[in-house]
Design a protein around this nucleic acid. Structure first.
Length: 576
RNA sequence: GCGCCCGUAGCUCAGUCGGAUAGAGCAUCAGAUUCCUAAUCUGGGGGCCACAGGUUCGAAUCCUGUCGGGCGCACCA
């Protein structure tokens, strides 16, 4: 299904072909810069093209002269009501009302598929997001990346990509040993021991108590006084599994479900990092060298130069070569991550990682690794890292203090319970992800038009309630009864497919949220006009034909809102 | 010191592939709101797009530099 805007782009293209035939344009003139898009100022019309300005030089004429030739052709198109030259050589077009009525009918017939695009062409995209360490419940720090990643996944699916939602489980580093030790204390506690204060450096959170109890049930006193070497691996496995169950449950509260959980420990057991290292050494991209001392601050007390296997990330734009193994021979996080990305790149046409901004410093090295591994193997796998900035939690304008040390932090479960899944998801998408944001518990639940979640959902609820109240059914039979005010709404709704495509290309799901705010605003405006002028109200008791045509319109607006919300994973409510 | 992100109205923020007179909400000011589908509506004022150069028909947008804010700069994860 071709979108309205694509159809008109094609018309412009056809006109340019005709001009080539007529000799007004040199054959094969580059149309790279030609755009056909709605002008920012609606008084300029529905669509505008810069074709004349871009091509004037190649046609060896001035923009306005070329524009006149183009306009002549455009005027023959029945769907183009007006075409005129403006400013330095823009061509502004107003579409025939029938074109908008047909678009309205197409919203109705495509229904919940309206806005789907095929620009992804079935290529596979792997999106890795959340990937929180399995050492505790999900808290606020993870929330934004989780929502942005999930909404991006939904968006790309709508745009015709085949998406894998992946979670990388960091179950191989020192932090999971710490988890196992913390669980061991809770286990001893559950066996009746007085453990007192949790020692510095271990996880103090209450959430480990149930795990201790389960371990106590399973193992009784077997490991109570045993040496760490006897229980560490076992407790680690049990505790990580329990943490992952908890994390999955937290994510489910947000409506997030990953397709794939990849374990770092399994990856290492399968010798993937060794394979990557061997391959990179073969290409001289890993060598044994001495790491430079940390810059910008006094080197740590125990700093001494050590020879380590280093990856030549500087060859790919990083600031320094990075170690893939530690001096004890174990893999660094980067070493394992490198192998992990190689594995992902093997199975997808494109990779996207969603990371917290605190990992910004490691973007270059992992991009370098992916470039080395894929390009070296003769493949080109586009790889994007999306950095998501921190969220400052507020309540009534006051920042909420959190301290991980004391185990006092706001969990996702707390948030969802207090404000609801839809509010959390939508609010996280009301700012571009790379900008810092505040999340005020008081503001996000406010039922007023200052609150975008409410504003959009209220528009949908209003539409649904009107449908319920009307005595007649919506009908596309008498769309010629719809006038300018109604068609203006269709214009806004018709932007939806374009918004999807541009948001998908830019990988920016927040654009959908902003668009829905605009669409809801247009609908509320239309509704409010009915307060002053009763003839503009949707339901006209003595005019069933007009009523059913307006219901048809309202239904279509509701459909677009539902589709947009569905992409973002937010419910469209029936009433409020 | 280095790297990355950000800097747009008093405030919170949009701004599509470089496009025309830079937008929205809040706040503010002036009106409307007996009825009605009102968890309001209409209109006004408010801008050195941080600053300085550059690229070009055209720059908030791209490039260089400066200033300001945030994050990061382990063999941690």
């Amino acid at each position: 299904m071709q979108t309205l805007h694509a159809a008109f782009s094609a018309k412009i293209d056809a006109v340019l072909n005709a001009l080539e035939m007529e000799g007004h344009l040199p054959p094969g003139a580059s149309r790279a810069g030609v755009t056909v898009e709605p002008p920012r100022d609606p008084s300029h019309g529905d669509l505008a093209t810069n074709a004349a300005m871009v091509l004037a030089k190649q046609a060896k004429t001035n923009p306005r002269a070329l524009a006149e030739l183009i306009v002549e052709h455009l005027k023959r198109e029945p769907d183009i009501a007006e075409a005129e030259i403006a400013g330095p050589g823009f061509i502004n077009m107003r579409l025939a009302n029938d074109a908008w009525r047909r678009e309205l009918a197409s919203i109705a017939s495509l229904g919940e598929d309206y806005g789907r695009s095929t620009i992804g062409a079935g290529t596979t995209v792997n999106i890795e997001y959340v990937s929180a360490n399995p050492t505790g419940p999900m808290h606020m720090g993870h929330c934004r990346g989780a929502v942005v990643g999930d909404a991006l996944a939904g968006l790309l699916e709508w745009a015709g990509y085949r998406v894998t939602r992946e979670y990388y489980v960091n179950d191989a580093g020192g932090q999971v040993d710490t988890l196992a030790r913390s669980a061991h204390i809770r286990y001893r506690e559950a066996r009746g021991e007085e453990v007192g204060e949790i020692p510095e450096g271990l996880y103090p959170g209450e959430y480990l108590k149930p795990i201790g109890e389960r371990l106590a049930q399973e193992f009784c006193d077997t490991y109570k006084n045993a040496d760490e070497s006897e229980w560490l691996a076992l407790f680690r496995e049990r505790a990580v599994a329990a943490m992952m169950d908890m994390i999955r449950a937290d994510l489910a509260l947000l409506g997030i479900h990953h397709d794939l959980f990849t374990s770092e420990a399994e990856l290492q057991a399968a010798k993937k990092p060794e394979q990557a290292e061997a391959w990179l050494r073969g290409k001289d991209l890993v060598y044994d060298g001495v790491l430079e001392a940390p810059k910008g601050k006094a080197p740590p007390e125990d700093w001494e130069p050590v020879e380590l296997p280093l990856f030549r990330s500087t060859q790919f734009g990083d600031d320094q070569d990075r170690p893939i193994r530690k001096s004890d021979g174990k893999w660094t996080y980067f070493g394992a991550d490198l192998a992990y990305h190689f594995q992902k790149a093997d199975k997808a046409d494109a990779l996207i990682d969603i990371w917290g901004a605190d990992h910004a410093g490691t973007v270059k090295r992992i991009k370098a690794a992916v470039a080395a591994l894929t390009q070296g193997a003769g493949r080109n796998v586009p790889f994007d890292v999306k950095l998501v900035q921190m969220v400052q939690l507020m309540r009534n304008g006051e920042p909420i203090k959190m301290s991980k040390r004391s185990g006092n932090f706001v969990t996702i479960a707390d948030m969802v319970e207090e404000v609801g899944k839809d509010v959390v998801r939508f609010t996280m998408l009301t700012r571009k992800p790379e900008a810092q944001m505040e999340f005020d518990f008081a503001k996000v639940v406010e039922a007023s038009k200052d609150n975008p979640v409410f504003y959009v959902q209220y528009a949908h609820a209003r539409i649904r309630s009107t449908m319920r109240k009307a005595g007649v059914k919506p009908s596309g039979e008498n769309l010629d009864r719809l006038g300018n005010a109604e068609l203006a709404l269709v214009r806004e709704a018709a932007q939806f497919p374009r918004v999807i495509e541009s948001a998908a290309k830019a990988r920016e799901p927040h654009r959908i949220a902003f668009y829905l705010g605009d669409l809801a605003g247009a609908f509320h405006g239309f509704w409010n006009a009915g307060n002053d002028d009763t003839s503009l109200r949707i339901i006209q008791e003595d005019e069933p034909e007009l009523t059913s045509a307006r219901l048809y319109l309202a239904d279509a607006i509701g459909q677009v809102i539902r589709n947009g919300l569905a992409i973002l994973g937010v419910e469209a409510v029936e009433e409020m």
